[in-house]
């Protein structure tokens, strides 16, 4: 079938786009456009690579495109279609360029640094509180009193969580506190959102500055209870 490879490639690309855009959000949160773009770029690259492995398949893939664009022997509807493509495609590129550069009231896409580097005084600290069942329980109690309104049962789904964007961290997720050393968590609790450095901009964190209300010892206990409750272990080097 002439144009078969090209057609299959086009169907595959559209199919993957529809899956990412419409089908996947039925089961989970919608994907941002940046991620869909990466996956589609990979799909198209894969199709082109496979289609150009041999001379024959290259011809089968690019042949219909070059014949269509060159207009050889075209009559009637095909001729009109070619003219339409030649006119509409540059317009589409122009529109895309315009819409991506024109001033807009929409805020720009975020690339916030979630885990900026901590200040020097917080590097290499270790938890001075002995890891005993009593201390862990005390830490969980403090967590319930001060942290759970936002962080819930360690899963970031406390009663107040829905009021925040970005939402409070989910400690059960292996991508949060499991990736961090205790000293880092100590810094984040103690200094809160206002203590984020410049590289953490935009400072979008409603985390209170707990050093105002809690003693260091209490913060260390909270950390202990937090890791235990989320079934995670802090990052260590030994």
């Amino acid at each position: 079938m002439k144009g078969g490879v090209l057609l299959k490639g086009a169907i595959l690309t559209v199919g993957i786009y529809l899956f990412l855009k419409l089908a996947l959000p039925l089961f989970t949160a919608p994907l941002p456009a940046s991620l869909i773009f990466i996956y589609l770029a990979l799909t198209v690259t894969g199709i082109v690579i496979f289609a150009t492995l041999s001379g024959q398949s290259t011809e089968a893939f690019f042949g219909p495109i070059s014949r269509f664009l060159s207009g050889e022997g075209q009559t009637g509807a095909m001729k009109t279609a070619r003219l339409l493509v030649l006119v509409l495609f540059p317009l589409l590129v122009g529109w895309q360029t315009y819409s991506s550069t024109a001033p807009s009231d929409q805020p720009p896409a975020e690339n916030r640094t979630i885990h900026p580097a901590p200040p020097g005084e917080f590097v290499g600290l270790s938890n001075p509180i002995p890891n005993t069942p009593e201390n862990v329980m005390a830490g969980k109690g403090l967590f319930a009193a001060f942290c759970s309104p936002c962080h819930g049962n360690f899963d970031g789904k406390g009663p107040a969580a829905r009021g925040f964007s970005p939402p409070p961290a989910n400690f059960v997720d292996p991508g949060t506190i499991a990736q961090l050393q205790e000293s880092y968590v100590f810094w984040r609790i103690k200094n809160g959102g206002v203590g984020l450095p410049i590289e953490g901009m935009p400072w979008k964190s409603a985390m209170p500055r707990w050093e105002v209300e809690l003693k260091d010892e209490q913060i260390w206990k909270i950390i202990m209870g937090e890791y235990d409750g989320a079934h995670q272990k802090p990052r260590t080097w030994e």
Binding site: P32, L35, P108, A109, N111, S165, D173
Partner: peptide, 18 residues
Amino acid sequence: HSLVASLEEARKMGGTHH
């Protein structure tokens, strides 16, 4: 790990972490 997302997209994801 943290995705580049518009405000609207980030809201739907519940943050920049899918």
